[in-house]
Design a protein around this nucleic acid. Structure first.
Lengths: 178, 178
DNA sequence: CTTGAAGTGAACAAATCTGTCTACCACTAT
DNA sequence: ATAGTGGTAGACAGATTTGTTCACTTCAAG
């Protein structure tokens, strides 16, 4: 990806997370990134495509980060699934925590057929698969349970600002898993 | 509340839920409700105030509905807390399920200081209190756990369209409670 | 009968939104 | 050298946004 295009996506992603998708105008993204409008529309056909590109990038980044955490935990002899909640905890207590891009996106694009909503659903599904891969085959149905705990923790942390939401979820995960 | 004002709030609430808050223009609310713009601004100082009024109404309605379900369950000798998940299940499988107004609102108004975000937080907190009132005093801290399961189920049902999300949450609630 | 409250309809302002287009610049590989 | 690529600056269009204002109507209560 060309550096200007990359910078555009990075800036857009940050602004979408801070202010929401509809509330973030294209002019603000351009001003903040220092990219010209013509360049934007050379790389993307519309604002929606920019949103999709930003979310796809975020999707890959999150999946990568979680995979790394899981691998590290397993090498240390710990539970890969529980490591996810430690990662959540770090996220919730970082300065940049403003909720999950995908939950927020499917809130704004409520129509299940909308490409942005569908991408959000795919992201959540991909995380479920990551969890499932950590479970013994006869516990596969627990993946949805763990995924539900993850999303519940995210909402709790975001809407009410409960910083230790990840540990509340983790406690329940332990009961479910063992 | 005057009937026209009431009708305005009802229409607005439905549209906000369907299309989101920023995406729903005031002109659409007016056209769909048949109310004139001057009337809107006689009753509300701004669109944000209309949003707040709609959410406050929804807040009271939801609390009332949950309380009723809990009372009915208790009279039948069942768990009041578990009855919440049955109510969720009905909601998820109704035609009008488009996610939780308050989760969606705090997604669009991400700033924790924004009145709309704060109202959403208050709503979620009020539900936690309702749950807490159903728990024995030494289990009070389980209210946040149950609340997390509720929100997790809502997200699961909305973003991925998992219709039985309420029962997945209910299964975990049973383990937590007993 | 008249006053006041509630509502209508429409025009209007002012800002903001996405998207298009033109003319131009800088660099790099052939 | 020259063609192609990627980028800039900025004007512009056209639609849409929230919010204001004015003249008029309807109707019930004192």
């Amino acid at each position: 990806m060309q550096p200007r295009k990359q910078h555009l996506v990075d800036t857009a992603l940050a602004l979408f997370n801070q202010q929401g998708y509809h509330a973030t105008g294209i002019d603000l993204i351009l001003a903040q990134s220092g990219v010209s409008k013509a360049t934007l529309y050379k790389h993307f056909r519309s604002k929606d495509e920019l949103i999709l590109a930003a979310l796809e990038q975020r999707h890959l980044h999150v999946l990568n980060a979680i995979s790394t955490k899981i691998d590290r935990a397993i090498k240390a002899g710990d539970s890969g699934v529980l490591a996810i909640f430690d990662a959540l905890n770090e996220w919730f207590n970082s300065e940049q925590f403003l909720g999950c891009n995908f939950i927020n996106a499917s809130a704004e694009y409520g129509d299940a057929q909308h490409p942005i909503h569908r991408l959000s659903a795919q992201h959540k599904q991909a995380i479920i698969e990551l969890i499932r891969a950590q479970l013994p085959p006869n516990d596969a149905e627990k993946a949805d349970q763990i995924g539900l705990l993850v999303d519940g923790a995210i909402v709790m942390a975001h809407t009410r600002g409960i910083k230790n939401a990840a540990f509340i979820a983790k406690d329940m995960a332990k009961i479910i898993l063992f």
